[in-house]
């Protein structure tokens, strides 16, 4: 059986912690970090990376274009 595994990369310094990606993620992958970036924002990160399916919904709603998305189809044994 094949499964999609995804990965997001957040440009931490560009992220403003608006949390729209957290809301848009269908598999609850993203959270805002406890730490802040250089501008004082709690940036987005993958809290549950295993759940990411690489759907790119997060990048779709991101106003600051700070999310890069990868996706790979893997055969499960």
């Amino acid at each position: 059986m094949a499964k999609m595994i995804g990965l997001i990369e957040v440009d931490i310094e560009t992220c403003k912690g608006c949390s729209l990606c957290v809301e848009a993620c269908p598999t609850s992958v993203i959270e805002l970090a406890e730490e802040v970036n250089g501008k004082g924002y709690n940036y987005a990160y993958m809290e549950n990376p295993d759940a990411c399916i690489g759907c790119a919904n997060c990048s779709m709603v991101c106003p600051d274009s700070c999310i890069t998305v990868y996706r790979k189809k893997v055969e499960m044994v």
Binding site: K16, P63, D64, V69
Partner: peptide, 21 residues
Amino acid sequence: NLVYSKSKVLTDNVMHYCPGC
């Protein structure tokens, strides 16, 4: 495996808008 990355037509300037705008 790249699904989405920032458009090359966007500059590297960080937008001045409020978070979530």
